[in-house]
């Protein structure tokens, strides 16, 4: 009986692949942009300028303290009211990138603050500029703290990308909603949707675990 149900769903596989592709592309672009932006925000937040630092802090708190669904609606439906026309894909990228950047910012800040002040003083005393101190001394040491939760955060963000189906993007979750209207067994459909996400996320979960084990290493640069 399960077999018959699987057959009835099987016809939808091109759609499912498209959905999976959309989920992967959307996640990949947002994670790359979000990581760059998140590191930038994290570095600025720990920099000397109090105004910039608290502005970033306030934004990060706002984003972390509101549901992603609300954020994506605001971006998709409110920005056009202000004269900024967005297609659903761009709106999804902006919303996900922003969400990723805010969470990653906090991870980077925690990593930077974990570096002992003596390290910064030593770099300062030898005349390294602010950027050289960050690039040569602080970030390489912060990365040991940052990497495991960073990869863990990627997993959460890939799953959060399912919310973009709410603004009509045909990602894996939306494909699930579409298919479920055509076949008798909805549970099975969403089991398969879940499996799709798991296949994408599981390698990252394994990577995060390996990185955490490596943290114990006594010395040397972190190599991915």
């Amino acid at each position: 009986m399960i077999w018959q149900q699987l057959q009835s769903i099987a016809g939808s596989y091109p759609l499912a692949l498209r959905g999976l592709g959309m989920t992967v592309v959307l996640s990949l672009i947002s994670l790359v942009l979000g990581t760059l932006l998140g590191f930038g925000l994290g570095i600025l937040r720990t920099g000397g300028n109090r105004l910039i630092s608290s502005a970033i802090g306030a934004w990060v708190d706002l984003i972390r303290g509101t549901p992603f669904l609300v954020q994506i609606f605001l971006i998709f439906f409110i920005l056009p009211e202000l004269g900024i026309e967005l297609d659903a894909f761009t709106a999804g990228i902006i919303a996900l990138t922003n969400l990723a950047a805010c969470f990653i910012c906090e991870i980077v800040v925690a990593g930077i603050r974990s570096v002992p002040t003596g390290q910064v003083e030593a770099a300062l005393a030898s005349g390294l500029s602010r950027w050289q101190r960050m690039r040569q001394v602080v970030l390489p040491q912060a990365m040991r703290i940052v990497l495991p939760p960073l990869v863990g955060q990627y997993v959460l963000l890939i799953k959060d990308s399912s919310v973009v189906s709410a603004i009509g993007l045909t990602d894996l979750t939306r494909v699930g909603w579409l298919v479920v209207q055509r076949v008798p067994n909805g549970l099975l459909v969403f089991f398969l949707v879940g499996l799709g996400y798991f296949i994408v996320c599981y390698p990252l979960i394994m990577l995060a675990r390996r990185l955490e084990q490596r943290m114990g290493a006594a010395h040397g640069e972190v190599q991915i």
């Binding site: 002992p116 003596g118 390290q119 003083e121 030593a122 770099a123 300062l124 005393a125 030898s126 005349g127 390294l128 500029s129 040569q136 001394v137 390489p140 040491q141 010395h219 040397g220 640069e221």
Partner: peptide
């Protein structure tokens, strides 16, 4: 100040070598 610091070596009690 950054340039002046290049003329001044500072040795710390806790060494503060870069561990990486």
């Amino acid at each position: 100040m950054t340039r002046l610091r290049t003329e001044i070596g500072f040795v710390f009690q806790s060494f503060n070598l870069y561990p990486h």
